[in-house]
Design a protein around this nucleic acid. Structure first.
Lengths: 164, 164
DNA sequence: CCAAATAAGTCAATATGGCTGACATAAATT
DNA sequence: AATTTATGTCAGCCATATTGACTTATTTGG
């Protein structure tokens, strides 16, 4: 891989690293490349990361309510509105009134939307596959457990009303 | 932890997940919470993520050139200029002319800048510590190897001129 | 020595994706 | 009937990224 952490000419060299500086940087670079894959594909459709998130979670939770999507993404309805409208206008997502509660506009991907969502999943899965391949089968479950444990209330984050 | 992936009422339930959909979502949520820690601290100083990155890498590579920072962050100098100027104006970073090449403005953190940078590292390290604690000592190195393997040329990404 | 390349900075305009505040409408609930 | 909920929308602001053009120093190469 690239030596992303290298300094330029005059560098004294990285100061002695306390804590997990190395992992912090690896997380930064790996996330950048991870989302970069999707960014490139999305750009061909005139979409950005915001569209990606909406499309992804609607694909994963067919029939979900707008409110649920807002809670999941933790953005405002104004922010969601812009990208959701585009996805609906361009035929990637449909909104159908709730049968029981007709105020709701339940969200579902169209075949076109589902196809793009699945392409994005496949693209990012390839990178994950590649990375998992550098681990022994016994080590692979550790990645999932690490990521799960990275989620949730740090001291700063409020306990966060459960979503489900 | 929170059940972030849950859909709302009407959901049929997640469609059968091909690839690593679950890991894709875990990466999304874990990164969000990971950077969220820093965001909260930075907000108290009137800084954002862009400032964080600059401060961090200058702290890690004292005396680095502006060009090196641009290559590392992969942003334009216009984007860098704005946040760098703020960090310099507010006494977090100093620029000193290169002794050999006086066109250069070598970047170094001030004591104040270094302190903030180290606080951010400590904050994020705590979350990482917590997450690593859910793994056996034998499993922990797997995380680093996974992250390293996640970096670099996916099919889309150009080979990227080495930096060091 | 002079021309060209390099390091850095700046101005102006544009795009994306967040945000707040204020309202509007329809439908459900009390 | 009054209130609450689900959704949408208008208007404006902020942070961060972009491109393109241009300036100023300074170094380097012919």
């Amino acid at each position: 891989m690239r030596d992303e952490t290298a300094a330029g000419a005059g560098a004294t060299g990285p100061a002695d690293a306390p804590g997990h500086v190395d992992l912090i940087e690896l997380i930064f670079f790996s996330y950048r490349d991870f989302v970069g894959d999707a960014d490139q594909l999305l750009a061909r459709f005139g979409f950005g990361r915001a569209h990606h998130r909406v499309l992804h979670f609607v694909e994963r939770n067919p029939g979900m309510r707008v409110t649920d999507l807002l809670d999941l993404l933790r953005i405002t309805k104004q922010s969601l509105g812009r990208v959701l409208k585009q996805l609906v206008d361009e035929g990637y997502i449909v909104q159908t009134p709730g049968e029981v509660d007709r105020r709701q506009r339940l969200l579902t991907t169209t075949p076109r939307g589902s196809r793009l969502a699945r392409e994005l999943i496949a693209l990012q899965s390839r990178r994950i596959d590649h990375a998992l391949a550098s681990l022994s089968p016994a080590e692979q479950p550790a990645v999932r457990r690490f990521l799960e444990a990275m989620i949730g209330g740090g001291e700063g984050a409020p306990p966060a009303d459960d979503i489900a």
